[in-house]
Design a binder for these strands. Structure first.
Length: 492
RNA sequence: UCCCCGUUAGCUCAAUGGUAGAGCACUCGGCUGUUAACCGAGUUGUUGAUGGUUCGAGUCCAUCACGGGGAGCCA
């Protein structure tokens, strides 16, 4: 790494006395909120500031140089103005798109049109150069596919800067939503030995030697010799653990990574993604649905409030309907139909469905899209699905044909939330486990929850990345998570 | 995993089976308080890989790899 050089424009600065170990005016400390570019842009002319960050573009005139500097703290860049001769030419020569620099100077009212305030620099420290002939991020637009190939650098782009600021704010909003309501945050385990979570293929976790697997007499892999003494996997859901906690803390939520080993190659699937799973005791499906709606509206409103500049960018460059949609969703009531009603709507739609519709079939993408994009044009909650197409733990309705399941469908991305009221009756649950030929011995602790102090309870799961897609308008889920893991791809 | 489409310069893309190009980036020069700056000149290629057809393949065929869209699975 190259040693930084301070260029003080002829002035004698205290920091230049420190010898080779050049530092900034504030002594090499981290960026505090008050010294971020976000704060600097809110400052007033005459203030002396030091800005640190990465150069997005550079424009030169004969008598003046312009840099646009970003430190990630906000969407806007800080324009740095360097009058010719103030900074040594050899320092200027090291500054190009991608370089990391530190600029000290005075805030002035901008003489140009694009910004109201700018930094007139009298000292520049180059922390790290970026070779112009090889630095892959150009000033011009890049395709999302190309940026994905340089995931270690794409966060410096406008788009991904906005994406990950929104992701951070959204995560905070989610915690705040639940914490405000007294929900206990549960860290559900990442490694699990319950191969019965039933939400898809799982990644194995093992310390066994793959070249020399221990075998049982029957020729099966002998997991009793493995690290956990039995077959272990990465979690596909924290729901079962959340149910345990709900029957102790009443209202709980999980928020953590989840893993699916499905060979899904779509713009909506990841092998590793983040999920939020609230679970509420003394709650039925209506309460569940109400919370889901309140939840989505509140976190959307938070992002609208706190990420205005980023959202404006998405609306301008990514998807022109984003702002309108979000404001609409935050303000209006969700539609609610039962599965049976939804089927009736689809049957009467007069369409040639690729997958024919009749009571008992699961809703396909085309059906979900029709309901949410064409019939109602807003999020739709579908409840009370046929028992045959839903998971064993969902509570059986009195009609014995349907279960207390709900899916929240959103325009453009389909299912964004899936949830249910859980079967809290021990005998009914046991019957369903047996009817589906599930290994009941694996569910012993889940069944015991129904044996000791059982209570009605319900919950749902929200995929964080699906929500991110909805909020930002980004079309591919791989572009709303920092370093996506998908089949055949985990480079960074 | 299935179906369709694609892979050519650093990036985005052109190129009837017949000499591989443009814009941007980059380098140099000019001009200007510039805003994805502008003007001029210049550099840049194992056409994804391996076979095959052909006098001749970026182009046609086969296989593979990677990417995109759709579907399934789901969040």
């Amino acid at each position: 790494m190259r040693e930084g050089t301070r260029s003080a424009g002829g002035q004698d600065r205290a920091s230049s006395d420190r010898g080779a170990e050049a530092t900034c005016e504030c002594g090499g400390c981290m960026i505090r909120p008050e010294s971020s570019i976000k704060a600097i842009l809110a400052g007033s002319p005459g203030q002396r500031v030091t800005a640190r960050g990465w150069v997005k573009t550079r424009r030169d005139s004969k008598s003046v140089h312009f840099l646009q500097l970003s430190d990630g703290s906000c969407f806007a860049d800080l324009q740095i103005v360097i009058d010719d001769g103030v900074i040594p030419a050899e320092t200027l020569a090291r500054i190009s798109t991608g370089a990391c620099i530190e600029a000290s100077g005075t805030l002035v009212e901008s003489a140009g049109g694009g910004q109201s305030i700018e930094l007139k620099a009298d000292g520049i420290l180059v922390h790290g150069e970026a070779d112009t002939t090889t630095y892959p991020l150009q000033k011009k637009g890049h395709s999302m596919e190309f940026l994905r190939d340089i995931a270690h650098l794409r966060s410096r782009s406008n788009t991904f800067g906005a994406v990950f600021r929104v992701r951070s704010a959204l995560s905070f909003a989610i915690h705040q939503f639940f914490q405000k309501r007294g929900f206990v945050y549960l860290h559900a385990p990442i490694v699990t030995t319950s191969d019965c979570e039933g939400a898809g293929a799982m990644f194995g976790v093992s310390t066994l030697d793959l070249m020399n697997l221990p075998r049982t007499d029957e020729g099966e892999v002998d997991y009793s010799q493995d690290f956990f003494g039995k077959r272990a996997s990465l979690t596909v859901s924290g729901q079962l653990e959340a149910e345990c906690f709900a029957l102790a803390f009443s209202n709980v939520y999980t928020f953590g990574p989840t893993f699916r080993a499905e060979n899904s190659n779509t713009p909506r699937h990841l092998a590793e993604f983040w999920m939020i799973e609230p679970e509420m005791a003394f709650c039925d499906l209506d309460g569940n649905r109400a919370l889901a709606e309140e939840f989505l509206k509140e976190i959307i409103a938070f992002v609208l409030d706190h990420c205005a500049a980023d959202l404006e960018f998405f609306n301008k460059r990514i998807d022109g309907t984003v702002l309108e949609t979000l404001e609409h969703v935050a303000a209006s009531d969700f539609e609610h139909v039962t599965y049976t009603e939804a089927i009736r709507i689809l049957e009467r739609a007069g369409r040639d469905w690729e997958f024919p519709v009749h009571w008992g079939v699961d809703l396909q993408s085309e059906h979900e899209r029709f309901l949410t994009e064409e019939t109602f044009k807003k999020p739709v909650v579908v409840t009370d699905y046929p028992r045959e197409i839903k998971a064993f733990y969902m509570r059986l309705n009195d009609d014995e044909k349907t279960v207390r399941a709900m899916d929240v469908l959103a325009p453009r991305i389909g299912e964004i939330i899936g949830g249910s009221q859980r079967e809290e009756r021990h005998d009914v649950l046991l019957d369903k486990i047996r009817a589906q030929h599930l290994p009941e011995e694996h569910y012993w602790w889940y069944l015991e929850l129904r044996k000791y102090g059982s209570a009605p309870h319900a919950g749902f799961g929200l995929g964080l990345e699906r929500m991110m897609m909805y909020i930002t308008g980004m079309k591919n889920i791989r572009d709303v998570i920092p370093f996506p893991r998908t089949p055949g791809s985990a480079e960074f």
